[in-house]
Protein backbone atom coordinates (compact mmCIF):
# COMPACT_ATOMS: atom_id res chain seq x y z
CA UNK A 1 0.00 0.00 0.00
CA UNK A 2 1.34 3.43 -0.88
CA UNK A 3 2.21 5.87 1.90
CA UNK A 4 -1.14 7.46 2.85
CA UNK A 5 -1.93 11.02 3.77
CA UNK A 6 -4.18 9.63 6.48
CA UNK A 7 -3.26 6.27 7.93
CA UNK A 8 -5.19 4.27 10.49
CA UNK A 9 -3.22 1.35 11.87
CA UNK A 10 -4.56 -1.48 14.00
CA UNK A 11 -7.47 0.56 15.30
CA UNK A 12 -9.51 -1.35 17.88
CA UNK A 13 -12.57 -0.41 19.89
CA UNK A 14 -14.75 -2.34 22.31
CA UNK A 15 -18.12 -1.23 23.67
CA UNK A 16 -18.70 -3.31 26.76
CA UNK A 17 -18.80 -6.85 25.47
CA UNK A 18 -19.08 -5.84 21.82
CA UNK A 19 -15.91 -5.70 19.74
CA UNK A 20 -16.80 -2.90 17.33
CA UNK A 21 -13.38 -2.73 15.69
CA UNK A 22 -10.76 -5.46 15.87
CA UNK A 23 -7.55 -3.98 14.46
CA UNK A 24 -8.42 -2.08 11.31
CA UNK A 25 -5.88 -0.61 8.88
CA UNK A 26 -7.06 2.02 6.45
CA UNK A 27 -5.20 4.65 4.45
CA UNK A 28 -6.06 7.31 1.91
CA UNK A 29 -3.61 9.22 -0.25
CA UNK A 30 -3.88 12.81 -1.39
CA UNK A 31 -6.23 13.09 -4.36
CA UNK A 32 -7.71 9.65 -3.75
CA UNK A 33 -11.28 8.64 -2.99
CA UNK A 34 -11.68 5.44 -0.98
CA UNK A 35 -15.09 3.87 -0.56
CA UNK A 36 -15.72 2.31 2.84
CA UNK A 37 -18.56 -0.18 2.60
CA UNK A 38 -20.03 -2.98 4.66
CA UNK A 39 -23.29 -3.99 6.31
CA UNK A 40 -24.81 -2.04 9.20
CA UNK A 41 -22.87 -2.54 12.42
CA UNK A 42 -19.67 -3.50 10.65
CA UNK A 43 -17.83 -0.59 12.28
CA UNK A 44 -17.63 2.01 9.50
CA UNK A 45 -19.04 4.93 11.49
CA UNK A 46 -17.13 3.87 14.61
CA UNK A 47 -13.95 4.07 12.55
CA UNK A 48 -14.83 7.59 11.39
CA UNK A 49 -15.68 8.60 14.96
CA UNK A 50 -12.31 7.38 16.14
CA UNK A 51 -10.38 8.99 13.31
CA UNK A 52 -12.08 12.35 13.87
CA UNK A 53 -11.64 12.28 17.64
CA UNK A 54 -15.26 11.77 18.65
CA UNK A 55 -14.35 8.45 20.26
CA UNK A 56 -11.06 7.31 21.75
CA UNK A 57 -9.44 4.19 20.31
CA UNK A 58 -8.58 1.29 22.61
CA UNK A 59 -5.56 0.48 20.49
CA UNK A 60 -3.92 1.49 17.23
CA UNK A 61 -2.67 4.74 15.76
CA UNK A 62 -4.01 7.53 13.57
CA UNK A 63 -1.53 9.49 11.50
CA UNK A 64 -2.06 12.49 9.27
CA UNK A 65 0.92 13.19 7.02
CA UNK A 66 3.04 11.15 9.39
CA UNK A 67 1.94 12.95 12.55
CA UNK A 68 0.04 10.97 15.19
CA UNK A 69 -3.35 12.45 16.04
CA UNK A 70 -4.13 9.85 18.66
CA UNK A 71 -3.97 12.13 21.68
CA UNK A 72 -5.33 15.27 20.06
CA UNK A 73 -8.88 16.51 20.69
CA UNK A 74 -11.26 16.76 17.75
CA UNK A 75 -10.79 20.49 17.18
CA UNK A 76 -7.01 20.06 16.94
CA UNK A 77 -7.46 17.31 14.37
CA UNK A 78 -9.73 19.65 12.43
CA UNK A 79 -7.08 22.35 12.62
CA UNK A 80 -4.45 19.97 11.25
CA UNK A 81 -6.67 19.17 8.28
CA UNK A 82 -8.83 16.16 9.13
CA UNK A 83 -12.59 16.65 8.99
CA UNK A 84 -15.80 14.70 8.57
CA UNK A 85 -19.52 14.95 7.92
CA UNK A 86 -22.17 13.27 10.03
CA UNK A 87 -24.54 10.50 8.98
CA UNK A 88 -27.36 12.41 10.70
CA UNK A 89 -26.42 15.99 9.86
CA UNK A 90 -25.49 18.24 12.76
CA UNK A 91 -25.84 21.88 11.77
CA UNK A 92 -25.94 24.61 14.42
CA UNK A 93 -29.73 25.03 14.34
CA UNK A 94 -30.01 28.50 15.89
CA UNK A 95 -27.30 29.99 13.69
CA UNK A 96 -27.98 31.12 10.17
CA UNK A 97 -26.72 29.06 7.27
CA UNK A 98 -24.02 31.63 6.55
CA UNK A 99 -23.00 31.75 10.22
CA UNK A 100 -22.73 27.96 10.20
CA UNK A 101 -19.81 28.36 7.83
CA UNK A 102 -18.40 31.53 9.35
CA UNK A 103 -17.78 29.88 12.71
CA UNK A 104 -15.54 27.24 11.16
CA UNK A 105 -11.93 27.80 12.15
CA UNK A 106 -9.65 27.67 9.10
CA UNK A 107 -6.98 25.08 9.69
CA UNK A 108 -3.34 24.69 8.65
CA UNK A 109 -4.31 24.59 5.01
CA UNK A 110 -6.25 27.80 4.56
CA UNK A 111 -10.03 27.60 4.92
CA UNK A 112 -12.41 28.14 2.07
CA UNK A 113 -14.56 31.16 1.48
CA UNK A 114 -18.05 30.70 2.99
CA UNK A 115 -19.83 32.47 0.12
CA UNK A 116 -18.18 30.27 -2.51
CA UNK A 117 -18.96 27.17 -0.49
CA UNK A 118 -22.62 28.14 -0.15
CA UNK A 119 -22.76 28.56 -3.90
CA UNK A 120 -21.08 25.23 -4.41
CA UNK A 121 -23.66 23.34 -2.35
CA UNK A 122 -26.51 25.50 -3.70
CA UNK A 123 -27.46 26.92 -0.31
CA UNK A 124 -26.72 30.55 -1.17
CA UNK A 125 -30.45 31.43 -1.37
CA UNK A 126 -30.87 30.24 2.23
CA UNK A 127 -27.82 32.01 3.65
CA UNK A 128 -29.87 34.14 6.05
CA UNK A 129 -32.16 31.34 7.29
CA UNK A 130 -31.67 29.53 10.57
CA UNK A 131 -30.02 26.21 9.79
CA UNK A 132 -32.64 24.40 11.86
CA UNK A 133 -35.23 25.32 9.23
CA UNK A 134 -33.45 23.54 6.38
CA UNK A 135 -34.55 20.14 5.07
CA UNK A 136 -32.39 17.24 6.14
CA UNK A 137 -30.82 16.99 2.69
CA UNK A 138 -29.92 20.67 2.83
CA UNK A 139 -28.51 20.13 6.29
CA UNK A 140 -26.32 17.33 4.93
CA UNK A 141 -24.97 19.66 2.28
CA UNK A 142 -24.41 22.32 4.93
CA UNK A 143 -22.50 19.76 6.99
CA UNK A 144 -20.29 19.11 3.96
CA UNK A 145 -19.77 22.81 3.34
CA UNK A 146 -18.88 23.42 6.99
CA UNK A 147 -16.35 20.60 6.97
CA UNK A 148 -14.82 22.10 3.82
CA UNK A 149 -14.76 25.56 5.39
CA UNK A 150 -12.06 24.34 7.79
CA UNK A 151 -9.85 23.63 4.77
CA UNK A 152 -9.32 19.90 5.33
CA UNK A 153 -6.65 17.79 3.63
CA UNK A 154 -8.62 14.64 4.35
CA UNK A 155 -12.39 14.46 4.52
CA UNK A 156 -14.40 11.58 5.93
CA UNK A 157 -17.87 11.53 4.38
CA UNK A 158 -20.44 9.48 6.31
CA UNK A 159 -23.47 8.46 4.21
CA UNK A 160 -23.99 11.66 2.35
CA UNK A 161 -25.98 10.18 -0.52
CA UNK A 162 -28.98 8.85 1.41
CA UNK A 163 -32.08 10.89 0.60
CA UNK A 164 -30.60 12.82 -2.30
CA UNK A 165 -32.37 12.89 -5.65
CA UNK A 166 -30.48 11.48 -8.67
CA UNK A 167 -29.80 15.01 -9.90
CA UNK A 168 -28.46 16.07 -6.50
CA UNK A 169 -26.39 12.89 -6.35
CA UNK A 170 -24.80 13.64 -9.68
CA UNK A 171 -23.85 17.14 -8.56
CA UNK A 172 -22.43 15.92 -5.24
CA UNK A 173 -20.42 13.25 -7.05
CA UNK A 174 -18.97 15.86 -9.38
CA UNK A 175 -18.20 18.03 -6.41
CA UNK A 176 -16.38 15.27 -4.51
CA UNK A 177 -14.38 14.33 -7.60
CA UNK A 178 -13.38 17.94 -8.02
CA UNK A 179 -12.20 18.06 -4.43
CA UNK A 180 -10.08 14.97 -4.97
CA UNK A 181 -8.67 16.56 -8.11
CA UNK A 182 -7.58 19.48 -5.91
CA UNK A 183 -5.58 17.03 -3.79
CA UNK A 184 -8.02 16.24 -1.04
CA UNK A 185 -8.08 12.67 0.28
CA UNK A 186 -11.58 11.36 0.82
CA UNK A 187 -12.98 8.33 2.60
CA UNK A 188 -16.61 7.86 1.67
CA UNK A 189 -18.93 5.64 3.70
CA UNK A 190 -21.93 4.74 1.58
CA UNK A 191 -24.62 2.12 1.06
CA UNK A 192 -25.51 3.33 -2.40
CA UNK A 193 -23.24 1.26 -4.65
CA UNK A 194 -23.95 3.27 -7.79
CA UNK A 195 -22.63 6.34 -6.00
CA UNK A 196 -19.58 4.47 -4.74
CA UNK A 197 -18.98 3.14 -8.23
CA UNK A 198 -19.18 6.60 -9.71
CA UNK A 199 -16.68 8.33 -7.42
CA UNK A 200 -14.26 5.91 -5.84
CA UNK A 201 -10.92 4.63 -7.01
CA UNK A 202 -10.99 1.62 -4.69
CA UNK A 203 -13.09 0.26 -1.87
CA UNK A 204 -12.47 -1.28 1.53
CA UNK A 205 -15.14 -3.72 2.67
CA UNK A 206 -15.68 -4.14 6.40
CA UNK A 207 -17.55 -6.78 8.32
CA UNK A 208 -17.82 -7.35 12.09
CA UNK A 209 -15.12 -4.83 12.91
CA UNK A 210 -12.55 -6.18 10.44
CA UNK A 211 -11.46 -5.45 6.90
CA UNK A 212 -12.79 -8.17 4.67
CA UNK A 213 -11.62 -7.00 1.29
CA UNK A 214 -9.54 -4.33 -0.44
CA UNK A 215 -9.67 -3.59 -4.15
CA UNK A 216 -11.97 -2.16 -6.77
CA UNK A 217 -15.73 -2.33 -6.45
CA UNK A 218 -15.87 -4.64 -9.48
CA UNK A 219 -13.48 -7.07 -7.85
CA UNK A 220 -15.43 -6.86 -4.64
CA UNK A 221 -18.64 -7.76 -6.42
CA UNK A 222 -17.01 -11.00 -7.55
CA UNK A 223 -15.56 -11.87 -4.14
CA UNK A 224 -17.41 -14.79 -2.57
CA UNK A 225 -16.96 -13.57 1.04
CA UNK A 226 -18.10 -10.06 0.22
CA UNK A 227 -21.17 -11.29 -1.59
CA UNK A 228 -22.02 -13.56 1.35
CA UNK A 229 -21.74 -10.70 3.79
CA UNK A 230 -23.99 -8.41 1.75
CA UNK A 231 -26.57 -10.95 0.68
CA UNK A 232 -26.35 -13.33 3.62
CA UNK A 233 -24.69 -16.72 3.24
CA UNK A 234 -26.54 -18.86 0.72
CA UNK A 235 -28.50 -21.87 1.96
CA UNK A 236 -26.43 -25.02 1.73
CA UNK A 237 -27.51 -27.11 -1.25
CA UNK A 238 -30.00 -29.77 -0.32
Amino acid sequence: MAEGLLELRGVAKRFGGFQALAGVDLAVAAGEIVGLIGPNGSGKTTLINIASGVLAADAGDIRLAGRSLLHLPAHRRAALGLNRTFQVPRPFPTLTVRQNLEVAVPGAAAGRDPAALLDAVELAPFAGRRAGELTSVQQKLLDLARALATGPRVLLVDELATGLTPAELARVATRLRALAAEGLGLIVVEHLMAFIDRITDRVVVMNAGQVLFRGTLREAAKDRQVVDVFLGAPEPAA
Binding site: T94, L95, V103, A104, V105, T150
Partner: peptide, 25 residues
Protein backbone atom coordinates in the same frame (compact mmCIF):
# COMPACT_ATOMS: atom_id res chain seq x y z
CA UNK B 1 -17.61 38.89 17.15
CA UNK B 2 -16.77 35.52 15.67
CA UNK B 3 -15.71 34.33 19.15
CA UNK B 4 -19.27 34.84 20.40
CA UNK B 5 -20.73 33.13 17.35
CA UNK B 6 -18.44 30.17 17.97
CA UNK B 7 -19.63 29.97 21.57
CA UNK B 8 -23.23 29.91 20.32
CA UNK B 9 -22.31 27.18 17.87
CA UNK B 10 -20.79 25.13 20.70
CA UNK B 11 -23.95 25.75 22.71
CA UNK B 12 -26.04 24.38 19.86
CA UNK B 13 -23.91 21.30 19.31
CA UNK B 14 -20.61 20.77 21.09
CA UNK B 15 -19.50 17.87 18.91
CA UNK B 16 -20.20 19.60 15.64
CA UNK B 17 -18.43 22.69 17.00
CA UNK B 18 -15.33 20.65 17.72
CA UNK B 19 -15.43 19.36 14.15
CA UNK B 20 -15.66 22.95 12.95
CA UNK B 21 -12.30 23.42 14.65
CA UNK B 22 -13.62 25.36 17.62
CA UNK B 23 -11.71 25.01 20.89
CA UNK B 24 -14.79 24.64 23.08
CA UNK B 25 -12.95 24.15 26.34
Amino acid sequence: ARFGLRLLAARDDALAAAMAGIDIV
